[in-house]
Design a protein around this nucleic acid. Structure first.
Lengths: 94, 94
DNA sequence: GCTATCGTAACCTGACACGTTACAGATTAC
DNA sequence: GTAATCTGTAACGTGTCAGGTTACGATAGC
């Protein structure tokens, strides 16, 4: 269990994909084939990276879809771990 | 992009967690703190592993939540890749 | 002033995780 | 044969979330 809150993948997209190339949100959304609202929600951490979006990112920015989803998993898992103690689970194996 | 359809994580749960210990679906569902229907749906590939379920599995079977979610990502991604050509995405970076 | 960009608030749809209840089929115990 | 158990699953509900369109206010550049 990691100590620090991992950043949501939207921050990485903004920092590594949009800003270096000077892409606006509107332009990037058009290129990705999604609405401006959808991309904006991701960039601001209000939506996660869906498998489909990961593939869009991999095509547009020549990256690995798996890496985007992995970052999303880290993010989701960290938040789910915060409610770990609320789960009533019995140990079934040593 | 992998060639072969990865198995859904439910098959791994059944093969690696339930059968070796002789656990029934009903018993495992009770131990995990979910309904029998929920676990059954996962085992038969009709539901995916949510972050919360991954944590339940990690507690009950003393495994890594991340590994369960990684397998789920592989599964989801493979299926999303099947519809890759339907996505209208423009290359935005070299 | 005019235009572009951006965040975001409505609204909608569809998908999916999860729950309870109930049923049918198979298996096992008596 | 009968009862008990396990299983899958259909039929209802819930809440959440990705995605869309439309529209508004704020901020910047010309």
């Amino acid at each position: 269990m990691r100590m620090h809150n991992p950043p949501h993948p939207g921050e990485i997209i903004k920092a590594l994909c949009l800003e270096p190339v000077g892409l606006t949100v509107t332009e990037a959304a058009e290129g990705l084939g999604v609405s401006r609202k959808t991309l904006s929600a991701i960039l601001n951490g209000r939506s996660g990276i869906s498998p489909e979006m990961a593939i869009r990112l991999s095509i547009a920015f020549n990256t690995s879809a798996e890496s985007w989803l992995s970052q999303q998993v880290q993010y989701d898992l960290w938040h789910a771990e915060q409610g770990r103690k609320a789960l009533k689970v019995v140990k079934l194996a040593a």
